[in-house]
């Protein structure tokens, strides 16, 4: 037994190294005084200082946050409605709609990006932050819907009936009983959506126009002109923020289940 345990432990340790070693190196070198990233020449915060002084970069951050917040709100409202109608109101062709809704999760993102771009060109909507936001809302909707629906599926439908029986209209029953119980999943889904929006490159690449550079696009253009330790610093921040958001999202989704 002991041997088996040790073996399993070292295997998972190897997994962690495999996953996080590159990120750890990246973070470490964001504090490296050397301009050439390959060797360690002492500790510095100067790359972080350069980062916050970069006006173009801050504009990209601002764009990313704007797109993230608005696309998340849209995806959350639509995703929750989709989840509720799929779970609670049976209708003809439900399975087809369900499949169609989840398809964006599995089709290659490049296709999604190209398709969105062609669509916007077709309806003559100039590529801008608006089109980026719509694009992000589109791929985030199914993510929110899946997360919320999983929670809704575990919710006893009799709770809604009880509310109705006690005098609540369908809307009041949703507002006072279903939504509060779904809240962990709604917030978890929204955070997940926000994180994915913040990190997205491909769909953004195809749907962005002049002046609508988001953070990942900015990083990409910076890398093209050579990897500077500033990129390391930026990436370190992005990774930490994303991990925090995802961690929070998972914690929220797990919350109420722990109570049962």
């Amino acid at each position: 037994m002991r041997g088996r345990r040790a073996w399993l432990l070292s295997a998972s340790l190897a997994d962690l190294v495999f996953l996080y070693a590159p990120i750890a190196v990246l973070m470490l070198f964001s504090f490296n005084a050397s301009r050439l990233s390959a060797t360690w020449q002492g500790f510095t915060f100067q790359w972080y200082r350069l980062l916050i002084e970069d006006v173009a970069l801050l504009a990209a951050v601002q764009n990313s946050l704007l797109v993230g917040v608005i696309s998340t709100i849209i995806a959350t409202v639509l995703g929750v409605s989709a989840a509720v109608s799929l779970e609670r109101v049976p209708f003809r062709g439900q399975r087809v709609v369900e499949g169609a809704l989840l398809l964006p999760l599995v089709i290659p993102e490049v296709m999604m990006g190209v398709a969105l771009m062609l669509f916007f060109v077709l309806i003559k909507l100039p590529l801008s932050l608006v089109t980026v936001t719509i694009g992000h809302a589109a791929f985030n909707l199914p993510i929110v819907a899946v997360i919320v629906r999983a929670r809704l599926h575990k919710l006893d439908p009799r709770l809604e009936e009880a509310a109705r029986d006690l005098g609540a209209t369908p809307w009041q029953a949703f507002r006072r009983v279903t939504l509060p119980l779904l809240m962990p999943a709604v917030l978890g889904g929204a955070l997940m959506a926000f994180t994915i929006s913040l990190d997205d490159f491909i769909v953004t690449f195809f749907t962005a126009g002049p002046g609508s550079t988001t953070l990942p696009l900015k990083v990409y253009s910076m890398v093209k002109s050579g990897v500077s330790p500033v990129i390391n610093a930026l990436s370190a921040i992005l990774v930490l923020v994303s991990m925090a958001l995802i961690g929070l999202s998972l914690a929220l989704q797990r919350e109420r289940e722990g109570q049962k």
């Binding site: 006893d156 009799r158 709770l159 009936e161 009880a162 509310a163 109705r164 029986d165 006690l166 005098g167 609540a168 209209t169 009983v177 509060p180 119980l181 109570q259």
Partner: peptide
Amino acid sequence: PPNLRPANLVFQTYALFPH
């Protein structure tokens, strides 16, 4: 509709609002 009926139901599983 159920919300306007002068009858109330006690569910077998009680269906108390957990929150």
